[in-house]
Design a protein around this nucleic acid. Structure first.
Length: 825
DNA sequence: GAGGAAGCCATTTTT
DNA sequence: TGGCTTCCTC
């Protein structure tokens, strides 16, 4: 959107309408102007949905006598929320502060803080992040002495989380099925976990939504207040909402029914974390008399790219009917490159990127190029090749800033200084850096705290009074001393928050430890020190922002009659920080870091961006590289189990393809070294779903795996792929032999055997396969070193491998034939 | 309680 | 392959 076009301060209503007409197509306009009643906007990829939402908000305020504070707009991420705020402000031409724009979590948290007492919490309850959550669950499991191979931490965490997403309490989960021992154990962990959270006056992320629903369901007055206040509710990315979120939308919109949801069922890619595609598919049933508007004109991609995306996604059943179209040019064909191995694939990507950025006419800026992949592990090979070509890049995803150890440690110090009773935080840092206080001491101190009903910090402060702690009392005193000093500084309130943060890093010894590691030659320490500095700038930024926020609220206060503006008086109460004291700032900062995984990270300046396809949702690039288009990788081997999962993979492919504006490259390899194993994957089925006319093949046919019976041509003896590669990319050397170390001639001939597998389902020539595929059959029994005797119930053939579903005396396990430690019984 | 060796296991991610 | 956990020894 052109900023200068929208100097809305000087626009009267007629002119604004004019502007609407200019900027929106007929259908978008219809969506914006719809006033009352439920509205479903099915917005295809690149159809301008963000524009529609922001215009709609502006329209409601400007033309429909709706106060900003009567609007609730829900986004998928905090980043999206900030962008939306900015764009709405541009349109409105005045402060849009009163509008509640944010994620479900941040908005519901705001509500919960106001009414915490109604659900049995103190108003200053704390939020557990994923890490805290894991530690707590682990503690409980250790206490229960659970060491079952099937009950690993992640699995339990997932089960609890999905129960919560379904609004299932542990009691309800318990009733679900009675006799399964595994199930019982999960229920028991869930029960103890909830009890521990409650005891600590804390909740996890999922709880925020669960408790919000409870609050509204059980308190008619509270529900009525919010229903009355929020005359309009807008929800973005509705296809990725889960059941609890659905309930919240339903509850909050109960009075006026002015709920507008925007989404695209074809882009639903988060079912693994409880997103329910049915929410969007059933919207018309759930909300009576709803209007449906389809945005089908794509403003992003060339015809070729869009046609390819359409032909892939149309393989899915059960979609809302829609057909994206574009007025854009036909554009370049999609390049498919079949590489020998992952090194070549990476080098192809790097060379092509260089070519795009350096081309004479109309070069593509690096910042407009994205490399997307199904699994983060694929980014590693690319890094090397990109560096080799001197291409600047940024990797998104993987370990996030706030998940880093040193950052978590620092935040834990903040929490410990802030509160006496944050047991998880204390346990985390009491021995960081090393102070000679081990697990046993922590455990004992905790027991004392629970026994004596004292905050843990006070037990530590009086360590010498408890005989159990006498051995380490000296070390504990050292720790208590540090915290006490820091706390005094906080209460004295004489220095700024950033200064204080720096002092914490020094006094705690965190910084010193890293400096010593750096001097000892440990490379990682350098970036860790940088991260600690980075968080200092976060505190500076946070202080500034808070200052502004408080001022803006003052301004609102002076200009408006509190009684007149719905919600103003209330909102004034619940801003993060009431003042700029250290205490207040710390409180606000901790709250933010709990919810904001990436304090809307600065967009890196003009660098190529690497990320998992999931993270690319909502983004677009002039040129996109989709790498690793291989069966077993994308679609991932786990998705072979059910048609639903396969459809989600296909939606993911659709999302990936539709990120591209002009150029799209898709790549696969003949042999891929991943997780320490070389695999010979078939080219992804998604490639075959794109008609020939849109594709230009380089280095090999994408169809070869499917129609080539005996490996003639592309898998023949010569390395034609390499020649094309080496020949057509000037400036690149032909890949040296070392690139091929994983690809022996023997390996090649073995690929041949896997061709017919899809049809015959029995060839077995893959050297990785421990079990002979042609020998196994349903009903056979095998011996597993851990689980004992198991019987094969199901065999799913995948590429040159197979997923076996085995029944070990009632326990169902799935394993890959190639790697499962099974012996014939 | 610390540190090293051995074993284990690998999606996707936001809040 | 490599990052993380657990087990074992000092």
């Amino acid at each position: 959107m052109n900023k200068s076009e929208i100097q809305s301060e000087i626009l009267n209503k007629a002119e604004l309408r004019e502007l609407f007409t200019d900027d929106l197509n007929q259908i978008q306009k219809e969506a914006v102007l719809h006033e009352n009643g439920p509205l479903l906007i099915l917005a295809g990829a690149g159809s301008g949905k963000t524009r529609v939402i922001t215009y709609r908000i502006a329209y409601l305020v400007k033309f429909c006598n709706i106060w900003p504070s009567e609007i609730l707009a829900i986004t998928f991420t905090n980043k999206a929320a900030n962008e939306m705020k900015e764009r709405v402000e541009q349109l409105l031409g005045f402060n849009s502060r009163g509008i509640w724009i944010g994620t479900f979590h941040s908005m519901m948290l705001r509500i919960l803080r106001q009414h915490a007492d109604r659900i049995g919490f103190e108003a200053n309850f704390t939020i557990l992040n994923t890490d805290d959550q894991q530690r707590l669950i682990k503690e409980i499991m250790t206490e229960l002495k659970i060491n079952d191979d099937l009950l690993n931490l992640r699995y339990v965490q997932n089960r609890i989380s999905s129960a919560k997403n379904q609004m299932q309490t542990w009691q309800e989960l318990e009733q679900e099925s009675g006799y399964d021992n595994l199930h019982k154990q999960i229920v028991e962990i869930y029960r103890l976990y909830q009890a521990a959270l409650k005891r600590g006056n804390s909740m996890d992320f999922d709880d925020i939504l669960v408790y919000a629903v409870e609050l509204l369901q059980q308190n008619a007055d509270v529900l009525d207040a919010y229903q009355t206040r929020f005359k309009h509710i807008l929800v973005d990315e509705y296809q990725d909402t889960n059941h609890v979120q659905y309930l919240l939308v339903k509850l909050l919109s109960g009075k006026y029914k002015n709920v507008c949801v925007v989404g695209d069922d074809d882009q639903s890619i988060y079912s693994f974390r409880g997103a329910n595609i049915e929410n969007i598919l059933n919207f018309e049933k759930d909300f009576k008399d709803s209007k449906v508007i389809k945005l089908e004109q794509n403003y992003r991609s060339t015809q070729t790219i869009l046609a390819a995306a359409n032909s892939v996604i149309k393989q899915n059943a059960g979609r809302k009917s829609k057909r994206l179209w574009t007025e854009k040019v036909k554009g370049d064909p999609i390049n498919f490159y079949l590489a020998e191995n992952q090194y070549e694939e990476a080098r192809y990507v790097a060379t092509e990127i260089r070519r795009l950025t350096k081309r004479g006419k109309d070069p593509i800026p690096a910042g407009n190029i994205g490399i997307l992949y199904r699994v983060n592990a694929l980014s590693r090979n690319l890094e090397f090749a990109l560096r080799e070509q001197g291409i600047k890049y940024n990797i998104y995803g993987g370990l996030r800033f706030y998940d880093r150890k040193e950052i978590r440690d620092f935040l834990a110090y903040l929490r410990v200084i802030f509160s006496d009773n944050d047991e998880l935080a204390i346990a985390r840092i009491i021995n960081v850096p090393r102070r000679g206080i081990g697990d046993l001491t922590i455990e004992r101190s905790r027991n004392i705290a629970h026994r004596e009903n004292l905050p843990l910090m006070q037990v530590l402060a009086n360590a010498d009074q408890f005989p159990e702690l006498s051995r380490t009392a000296n070390n504990i005193r050292q720790f208590v001393q540090i915290i006490a000093e820091l706390r005094t500084i906080m209460l004295d309130n004489q220095i700024s928050f950033p200064e204080f943060a720096r002092i914490i890093q020094e006094k705690s010894g965190l910084l010193q430890e890293l400096i010593e590691q750096k001097e000892g030659g440990q490379e990682q320490a350098i970036s860790r020190i940088e991260n600690l500095q980075e968080i200092l700038s976060d505190t500076i930024e946070f202080t500034e922002r808070t200052k502004q926020e408080i001022e803006q609220f003052k301004l609102l206060d002076e200009n408006f009659d509190q009684a007149e503006v719905p919600g103003l008086a209330q909102d004034n109460m619940d801003i993060y920080c009431q003042d700029l004291s250290l205490y207040s700032l710390m409180k606000g900062f901790l709250e933010q870091t709990a919810l904001f995984s990436d304090l809307d990270q600065e967009e890196a300046e003009n660098t190529v961006r690497l990320m998992a396809i999931h993270s690319a949702k909502g983004l677009e690039f002039d040129a996109v590289f989709l790498i690793g288009m291989e069966e077993g990788l994308f679609p991932g081997y786990r998705s072979f189990e059910t048609p639903e999962q396969m459809e989600e993979e296909r939606r993911l492919a659709y999302v990936g393809i539709t990120r591209a504006r002009r150029f799209l490259h898709m790549t696969a390899t003949r042999s891929r070294l991943l997780y320490g194993q070389t695999k010979y994957n078939l080219v992804s089925r998604f490639m075959s779903e794109i008609p020939d006319e849109y594709i230009r093949e380089i280095g090999g046919s994408r169809q070869s795996n499917f129609d080539n019976k005996f490996g003639a041509g592309n898998f023949g003896g010569d390395d034609s792929g390499v020649r094309v590669f080496g020949g057509s990319y000037s400036g690149t050397s032909i890949p040296d032999k070392s690139s091929y170390s994983n690809h022996s001639p023997g390996g090649k001939s073995k690929i041949l055997g896997s061709f017919g597998l899809r049809d015959k389902q029995q060839a077995n020539l893959n050297k990785n396969t421990k079990l002979n595929l042609s020998d196994i059959s349903i009903g056979q029994s095998f011996k597993h070193k851990k689980f004992g005797i198991g019987i094969i119930e199901k065999i799913d053939y995948v590429a040159s491998d197979a997923i076996l579903t085995l029944n070990f005396n009632g326990r169902i396990k799935r394993m890959m034939a190639s790697s499962a430690p099974l012996e014939k019984n």
